[in-house]
Design a protein around this nucleic acid. Structure first.
Length: 553
RNA sequence: GGCGAGUUGGUGAAGUGGCUUAACACACUGCCCUUUCACGGCAGCAUUCACGGAUUCGAAUUCCGUACUCGUCACCA
């Protein structure tokens, strides 16, 4: 086909486009950003629920854009109508918000590079494709599904590369008359790339994470525009990321094998190539089979986005975990810098895992504990209340009614450089601190007690009535407990008791244990003095009463 | 099958030719601290980096081959 003919063909195929390429190029000028600013984007396909892997890649988009003073935008990639799920888009934007992953531009966020939904950009894609046709780099292909299937079969038998290329691209060099004939017959068609590549030549690309990768040049006539005039992912990616001036495409590594195609597309469209950062999938070692596989929403609760909120895991703790997955040196840095947060850390692509990143539930749990340990009692209280308001309304009421005491309980052993680590999620607060709220404690009625001993109520009452003094310091208080222990035939320290076990009934620890069990209903608790001080003598005595009922039930 | 990537302890991983008798964290075990638990401290936990070969004075690190795992080869993204 001559250039004249291609021009004619382009006009026949796309008669109604309002603009030309230059129009769009001018519409979306270069962004005015500081040097080194990264423009990243998250491009979800609205197919329903969100996977941890998606969240991770969006998280990376956000941190890299943020730390470089760039832009992170959200683009809805809904070019496939068949995959559309009712409410899918709303679900995605909602989940992102819920996870505190906030784009600073894009769908529902606005910006000067929209529309940010691909189904609203069809005309733009077609404009570029029309130009490609004029330049002889794209052509209409009328091959039927059957024809495609049959060349694939042939290729499989011949053990050659599968796809539409070379001699298999039968419509590649159709004459204008032939195309017109097809059109007259109303034959359906797609627009294919007329790939200028040579598979015998190599290209080398530099992935920000994976480093240098070599591929044969791309030589297949990939589909650019589908039968319905809608673009394929590849075309949309090239055009959108060019027009929106994305600098870094961070995406899952299932895309690395399409790098040659994308690279070629950028080249023939005359676009400055984007930098790619292909992140490894989040995997898990299957507990049953021992093999490594991708996280599965069906088998692994962590894979689904809903899980975290529902089970009361703080979003910030998840961010912390994503950050430790994202950069291998983050964890160490975070442990050394007690007072710093994620945004203080400088992430870099070369600290990202190249192979699969394994999800370590135990480590995640520990990170959650660390998160809580660094929060003040009041912060823990507020966050827990906030969570309970939607996920445990009854508990939320109890929390509100017991605010000041609850904060005191949650603050025990929080000051100082070595805070307790006993909570990993909001629902743990309810479990671990049930003794803090009278009505809960009464209901629980020592059901949490996991020992088999019964304790001397008279001894405890004697102590409470005659020796208890909560107006002194912790140390003085404990000295009085020691005094009381000695008087009653208990050793003042466990060491002493160990030396002469026969001369004592037990040691101070035993007295404390009795107190602890009656007051908290369990063998383990935070500092006893602090608990007693918050409760006060009256409540303590009531609990001893309750214990009496428990023993005699 | 073609193309591409990965393979370091119980786990997540650091490591880019000598500073590695393989960091750090999680888990586990022991001891210490201690009124319980948690926290914290100390110690233990890979004589070895999938396997075979090559290069080198020297390799977990470079090269070649083998095995296994993963991704991809759609008018899905």
């Amino acid at each position: 086909m001559s250039e004249e003919e291609r021009r004619e063909l382009a006009d026949i195929l796309f008669p109604n486009l309002k603009h030309d390429i230059t129009y769009y190029e001018n519409l979306y000028p270069e962004r005015d950003l500081p040097d080194g600013a990264m423009v990243t984007r998250y491009g979800p396909s609205p197919t329903g629920s969100v996977h941890l892997g998606n969240l991770f890649s969006a998280f990376c988009d956000m941190i890299y854009a943020r730390q470089s003073g760039g832009v992170f935008f959200l683009r809805i990639e809904d070019t496939d109508q068949k995959r559309m799920v009712e409410g899918g888009i709303e679900n995605i934007t909602g989940v992102l918000k819920g996870f505190n992953i906030i784009p600073n531009e894009g769908y529902t966020y606005g910006g000067n590079y929209g529309p940010y939904k691909q189904s609203d950009r069809t005309e733009i894609y077609q404009t570029y494709v029309k130009d490609l046709i004029v330049r002889g780099l794209a052509y209409p292909c009328f091959m039927s599904e059957e024809e495609l299937a049959s060349i694939k079969e042939e290729q499989e038998i011949n053990k050659t590369k599968i796809g539409v290329y070379g001699v298999y691209a039968v419509d590649r060099d159709l004459s204008l008359a032939e195309v017109k004939e097809h059109l007259k017959n109303n034959d359906s068609y797609v627009i294919r790339l007329k790939s200028p590549g040579d598979a015998n030549k190599q290209i080398e690309v530099n992935d920000c994470i994976k480093g240098k990768i070599k591929f044969p040049e791309y030589d297949m006539d990939s589909v650019l525009l589908k039968k319905d005039g809608t673009p394929t992912y590849h075309l949309a990616h090239a055009i959108d990321d060019h027009l929106m001036h994305t600098t870094h495409v961070i995406r899952g590594d299932e895309w690395v094998s399409s790098i040659p195609l994308h690279y070629q597309l950028f080249q023939i469209l005359g676009f400055k190539p984007v930098k790619y950062a292909h992140i490894a999938p989040i995997t898990i070692k299957d507990p049953e089979t021992g093999t490594i596989r991708k996280l599965s929403k069906r088998k692994d609760p962590w894979a689904g986005a809903k899980f975290y909120e529902e089970s009361g895991i703080p979003i910030e703790a998840l961010h912390l975990y994503l950050a430790t997955i994202a950069n291998s040196n983050f964890e160490e840095w975070y442990l050394k810098n007690q007072d710093k947060s994620i945004s203080d850390f400088k992430f870099s692509f070369d600290k990202m895992a190249i192979g699969g990143t394994s999800f370590d539930a135990l480590k995640f749990n520990n990170i959650c504990k660390t998160y809580f340990s660094r929060k003040s009692g009041e912060e823990v209280y507020n966050e827990t209340l906030n969570w309970a308001k939607t996920y445990d309304k009854d508990y939320a009421k109890l929390l509100s009614a017991n605010k000041s005491d609850m904060i005191k309980f949650l603050s025990i052993e929080k000051d100082g450089p070595r805070p307790r680590k006993d909570i990993s999620k909001y629902s743990d607060v309810k479990e671990e601190f049930s003794y803090a709220i009278d009505s809960m404690f009464e209901k629980e009625f020592y059901s949490k007690f996991d020992g088999d001993k019964t304790y001397d109520i008279d001894l405890v009452l004697d102590y409470l009535n005659n020796y208890l003094d909560l107006d002194v310091s912790n140390e003085e208080w404990f000295n009085k407990v020691r005094e009381f222990a000695l008087i009653n035939g208990y050793a003042a320290t466990p060491k002493e008791y160990k030396k002469n076990p026969d001369s004592y009934k037990g040691h101070v620890g035993d007295i404390c244990e009795a107190l602890r069990v009656m007051i908290t209903g369990r063998l383990k608790s935070p500092d006893l003095y602090s608990i007693m001080k918050i409760l006060g003598k009256d409540k303590i005595l009531k609990r001893v009463d309750l214990y009496k009922k428990f023993i005699n039930k």
